[in-house]
């Protein structure tokens, strides 16, 4: 049974339908990347799975349970954590407070987990009292991912984690994402220009205008000349 199974999901904002029946699956331990042109509904799909956007039709199954009408703060409890593309930290809270908020649902003493995150992202340990709003783009992305990891998720959704980062930083974050995956966390990635992401992915989906266009192994999508030309910038 798939870890996450999105079937024929329809959703959108207000009166505007953005997703017209999107399906995808992720198995345990996989990295899956969704690519597609700007405005194809990638971010909406992420928000729909995370519960921030209502599902109008279709189902979202996570670990065998239907979460399509579960409020977002409950979804976090089930082990599915979401890192938005922008606005993904609490800017006026310190680094440490951001991590504490990530662990809001934990009842145990989670100090060790924070220490673990400091080891995993050494940049964060430099000055834990620093306000998240004053961090650089890469550091902020690390903090955002660390915040999502505080709950020990089984699946983590990353919305364009490499957008706007310097190339060196992209490799650093990508390396951390692979490390997270090796520790047993499944990863769903959304990327616009996603050669690196696809190259490390087990599978990939191409999303166009709120509908599935293609699904294949990550490497196969990279080799597909049409995909390459249309969605990967030549």
């Amino acid at each position: 049974m798939a870890l996450l199974e999105v079937s024929a999901v329809v959703s959108g904002y207000g009166q505007t339908e953005i997703l017209h029946g999107v399906s995808l699956t992720i198995d345990d331990g996989e990295i899956v990347t969704i690519i597609g042109p700007n405005g194809c509904g990638k971010s909406t799909l992420m928000k729909t799975v995370a519960g921030l956007v209502n599902v109008w039709d279709g189902t979202v199954n996570f670990r065998g349970k239907d979460i399509s009408s579960t409020p977002p703060e409950q979804i976090a409890r089930t082990g599915l954590c979401f890192v938005p593309q922008t606005r993904n930290v609490f800017p006026t809270l310190s680094i440490r407070e951001n991590l504490e908020m990530g662990a809001f649902l934990r009842k145990d003493d989670f100090t060790w987990r924070i220490e673990e995150m400091y080891r995993f992202f050494p940049d964060l340990a430099l000055d834990p009292g620093r306000r998240a709003g004053s961090l650089s783009g890469g550091q902020r992305q690390m903090l955002a991912i660390a915040r999502a990891l505080m709950l020990d998720p089984t699946l983590i959704l990353l919305d364009e984690p490499f957008a706007g980062l310097a190339p060196a930083m992209v490799y650093l974050v990508l390396d951390r994402v692979l490390e997270i995956n090796r520790s047993g966390v499944s990863v769903l990635l959304v990327e616009q220009n996603a050669r690196q992401a696809l190259s490390v992915s087990n599978r990939g989906y191409v999303l166009v205008s709120g509908e599935n266009r293609l699904e294949d192994k990550g490497s196969a999508l990279l080799d597909n000349p049409e995909v390459s030309r249309l969605y990967l910038g030549g």
């Binding site: 703060e73 976090a76 409890r77 993904n88 006026t92 407070e97 504490e100 915040r147």
Partner: peptide
Amino acid sequence: RIGKAMRATADNPELALVSGIGT
């Protein structure tokens, strides 16, 4: 904990929700 959650919600309501901070 609740005070920080209040500040977090003021900062970024959506992120607070997906972090499991109930409204």
